[in-house]
Amino acid sequence: MTHQTVLRHHWLIRCYRAQLKVGLRVLTAVWIIPPPIAAAVFAWLRRTEVPKRGTVVKQSIRSKIVIPIVILLGLTALILTLVARWHHAPARQSGTPSTGSTLLPGENQQTHGRLDAWARPMTSNPHELAIAYARAIWTYDTSRHSLEDWQGAVSAYADPTGAAPTVAMSLLPLMPEWRQLEQRKANATVTDVAAETTPALKQLEDSDDAPNGWHAFVISGKQRTVLDTETTVVERQAVVAVVCAPTCKFWSATNQVQP
């Protein structure tokens, strides 16, 4: 290898290494490459620094050219892939909102898969939670959500560590009933929702057996249901118990209301 050939190879190595350093700094700045990986590559570059002009260049200089080229090509392919994904991202975002997404303040339309009436309030007021639970179990729209969506929203009223979520969902329709409602494009809303206590429930609340913060109510409301073109209004009632310590959570519920 002549002296001029060595110089040309020497210059190529410095060129490729400079491009690699610039690429690493850019990709690290935008968090495409983690800083530890970039630090390792920079350390390798320092260890394999090309001899200065005028010094003897060993035969391994060829590998020092090939390795930066391979790394540079890999980084270029990565950048092109990310650019292509970013280019198509707005088209995906402009589609139908995903299930369970949150509405921004000021929006009037409800999110697909979750109704506003299902929202659980974070409150220490047991009466407020009982009212919200009544609204959640008597409001649905088969054209906007699945039974699983509804069950998930209602179970969120309860402590997830026990059996309470299953009990909270027990007042919802079973799957065969839900299929029939879907076939008839059913939806329902509830008005005049109330939560009242009774002497019997008050006695239970004051007993030594009741957990701290335990409260029970008879919840009621008028459910307006649309089945195809038929509309009916039905009086609904249930008993719900909540525990507030201090944030209120669902405790138990039943459709069996004693006079």
Rank of each mutant, 00 (worst) to 15 (best):
N212S: 12
T48W: 08
T197F: 03
A188M: 07
G213C: 01
K52M: 13
H112N: 05
Q93M: 10
W31S: 13
D206I: 15
A117T: 06
N212M: 11
E235S: 12
A130K: 01
C15D: 11
I131L: 06
I69D: 05
R85C: 05
W150E: 01
E230L: 02
V83T: 15
A130G: 04
A210F: 11
T96L: 09
T198C: 09
T139E: 04
A216V: 14
N125Y: 03
Q223M: 11
E49D: 09
V218L: 02
Y140F: 15
L27A: 05
D206K: 14
A163V: 15
E182F: 01
Q110E: 11
V243N: 07
Q237S: 10
H127E: 09
R62D: 14
V218T: 11
S143L: 13
Q223D: 10
A117P: 02
Q59L: 14
P36I: 13
L129T: 03
M175A: 10
I71A: 07
I137S: 00
M169G: 03
L115S: 01
D192Y: 08
H88C: 00
R92L: 08
T232G: 02
G95P: 10
T231A: 07
V30F: 01
T161Y: 12
V190C: 04
G213Q: 02
V257S: 00
T225H: 07
A163I: 15
R47D: 13
T161D: 14
R236I: 08
I79L: 10
P259E: 12
G221A: 08
R135H: 06
G162V: 14
L27R: 01
Q180P: 00
P173S: 04
A195L: 10
C15M: 06
I37C: 05
W31T: 15
E196F: 15
